[in-house]
């Protein structure tokens, strides 16, 4: 009886919320016409929305996968699957990331969950680096962007993989502290799950986790995108490139650009391609490899999961290694 009543009340609440939302929406146009702001504000809002809409499916898939991991994968599974040897574990993390079709913002909730489940940080780092960088969508878009030429696409994958391995190893040697924020760490201890529950209960549990994860992550995503949209609206990259010339400078500038633009890894190849004849290959690879590993919008998401010190070290290590490896490659490429 009580359950029936509860069901009816929930239905009613849903209908009420829906009605309220529809009411709000019917006033949309009237409100929009009521005032006029500077054109650049509208443009920034449009760019902000386009990145948000672009990122949403990936983030939502990320939180769903994260919820499923929370419910269906136990710490024992992880212990059994991950090799004891650190370097083997890193290689495995990188390989799994390469197979996994991720995006730099969708992968953060998954990483958070995996770390909570006891995946060692070095393996997770490898996974986080190759996940957005190496996947079929990225290969295809890079291939198309560079005039149906496989060279850049292959270099992006191959060199990117090697760089990810090096970064994961360096990180594992240089970081001794617990990387997670304490607030996220405490929480897992409370989540204790009955792994014998029915499938339906499990799935609904996973969805509840997904919802919580969504609300936890989305605010950082929004802030990050807001910064990126600001940069895209108000900063001209023609002035950025007037700063200097030369291989190292060009590579550095393209990496700065990749960081600031925060474009999804599925789509950044066309931007790189539009510079393909002005800059050396190291600058293009720097842009294509650095962007998926770290950018403005995902730095904020990383800060939500990891301690600030960890993110700072990660940022420096990724920047230095990507920069030096692509320049080194440029040296060999000339010969």
């Amino acid at each position: 009886m009580l359950n029936k009543l509860r069901g009816a009340v929930i239905d009613f609440t849903g209908l009420f919320l829906f009605g309220l939302a529809m009411c709000l929406f019917s006033y949309k146009e009237t409100i929009q016409l009521m005032f006029q702001l500077p054109a650049s504000i509208y443009k920034m809002n449009t760019i902000f929305f386009s990145i948000l809409i672009e990122a949403f499916p990936f983030v939502l898939l990320g939180v769903i996968i994260s919820g499923l991991i929370q419910i269906f994968i136990t710490e024992d599974h992880i212990k059994r699957w991950i090799p004891k040897n650190k370097y083997l574990a890193i290689t495995m993390g990188c390989l799994l990331g390469a197979v996994f079709p991720g995006c730099e913002c969708g992968i953060v909730p998954i990483i958070r969950r995996l770390l909570n489940k006891g995946v060692p940080i070095y393996a997770a780092t490898g996974f986080m680096l190759t996940g957005p960088l190496i996947n079929p969508l990225v290969i295809i878009s890079t291939y198309i962007a560079f005039g149906n030429d496989l060279k850049i696409a292959f270099l992006r994958m191959g060199l990117g993989f090697i760089i990810a391995l090096i970064i994961a190893i360096v990180m594992s040697l240089s970081i001794k502290m617990k990387p997670l924020r304490s607030s996220t760490h405490k929480k897992i201890k409370r989540d204790h799950h009955d792994f014998k529950a029915s499938l339906l209960t499990k799935i609904s549990g996973a969805m509840i986790h997904a919802t919580d994860e969504f609300f936890y992550m989305v605010k950082y995503l929004i802030l990050g995108i807001l910064f990126a949209a600001f940069v895209q609206t108000y900063i001209s990259y023609e002035t950025l490139f007037s700063l200097g010339e030369g291989e190292a400078v060009a590579t550095g500038l393209m990496m700065v650009l990749a960081y600031l633009l925060s474009v999804c890894s599925e789509a950044d190849a066309f931007i790189a391609a539009s510079f393909s004849n002005l800059f050396p290959i190291s600058a293009l690879l720097g842009f294509l490899i650095y962007g998926p590993m770290i950018d403005l919008k995902n730095t904020l998401m990383l800060l939500s999961v990891f301690k600030t010190k960890f993110v700072a070290v990660f940022f420096v290590v990724v920047t230095v290694i990507v920069f030096s490896v692509v320049l080194l490659f440029q040296g060999f490429y000339h010969r």
Binding site: I31, K43, T46, Q232, T233, S236, E238, F275, N277, L278
Partner: peptide
């Protein structure tokens, strides 16, 4: 999203993205 209508990218965005750089490239 509610109060601001969307606009189309225009010449000032093109300028930010380096029109002449892109053309010469």
């Amino acid at each position: 999203g509610f109060i601001l209508p969307f606009t189309t990218l225009d010449a000032s965005t093109a300028a930010n993205r380096g029109v002449m750089l892109s053309l010469t490239s």
